[in-house]
Amino acid sequence: MDVSWVTPSILAELRRPREYPAVSLVLPVHRALPEKAQDPIRLRNLVAQARKQADDDPEITHSRRADLQKQLDSAVEELEWEREQTSGEGLVLHVAPGEHHTWVLPQPVTEQVVFGTTFLTRNLVAAANMLEPYWALVLAEKPTRLWDGSPLWLHEVTEYGFPLSAQGPEGEAPLKGGVAVRPSEPRAAYRTERVQRFIRAVDDALGQALERRRRPVFLVGMQAHLRRMRELTRHRDALADPETDTEAAGYEKASAAALSEALRTAWERAHAKRVRTALDALDAARSEKRYAGSLEEAWSLVNQGRGRHLVVDESYHVAARVDGERVNVVTGDEGEIRPDARGTVVQDAVDELVERQLEHGGEVTFVPSGAVDGTGLALSLRY
Rank of each mutant, 00 (worst) to 15 (best):
L164Q: 05
D148E: 10
P40W: 05
R65C: 06
M222Y: 04
G370H: 06
W147C: 02
E231L: 04
Q53F: 05
P151L: 10
P40H: 09
E99Q: 15
E363A: 07
E170V: 09
V330R: 10
G335P: 02
H225R: 05
D283S: 11
E363D: 11
P163Y: 09
D2F: 08
E185Q: 15
G221Y: 00
G90C: 08
L93E: 10
T265G: 03
A341P: 03
R65K: 15
A281M: 05
A54P: 10
M229Y: 01
E19G: 11
D2I: 10
A266F: 02
L206W: 00
L14K: 13
R286L: 13
V23Y: 11
T158S: 14
P151S: 07
H317Y: 13
D56G: 03
L120P: 06
R269F: 02
P40K: 07
H235E: 07
M130T: 14
E359F: 03
Q357K: 10
H235W: 14
R382Y: 10
T110I: 11
E243D: 13
A48R: 14
A201L: 04
L377D: 04
D203Y: 03
R306F: 06
V47F: 08
R197L: 10
K289G: 11
Y160F: 15
A266G: 02
M229L: 08
A37R: 10
K70R: 15
R269D: 00
L25S: 11
F366Y: 13
L146H: 05
R214C: 00
W5N: 15
A12G: 07
M229F: 03
D333R: 13
V220K: 01
G178A: 13
R18N: 06
Q347S: 14
A298Y: 10
G98V: 11
E288L: 13
A341R: 12
L259T: 02
V114E: 07
G343F: 02
D280H: 03
S4T: 05
L139K: 01
G374Y: 11
S300C: 09
E193T: 10
R290I: 08
D241M: 04
K70H: 15
T244I: 00
G361F: 05
L11P: 11
Y291E: 04
V76R: 13
E314N: 04
V138W: 02
R194W: 14
D340R: 14
L295F: 04
H309M: 12
R264M: 02
E252T: 00
K176M: 11
I337S: 12
V275A: 03
W299E: 12
N129E: 13
V109K: 03
S24D: 07
K273E: 04
S9V: 06
V23T: 12
K176D: 13
T110S: 06
G307Q: 04
R227G: 00
E261D: 02
Y190L: 08
R194I: 05
K70M: 12
L137C: 00
W103Y: 11
Q53S: 09
R228F: 01
G343S: 07
R236V: 02
Q69P: 01
A298E: 09
S300H: 15
W135R: 01
A209V: 00
V138T: 05
D348R: 12
D333P: 05
R264L: 08
G161L: 12
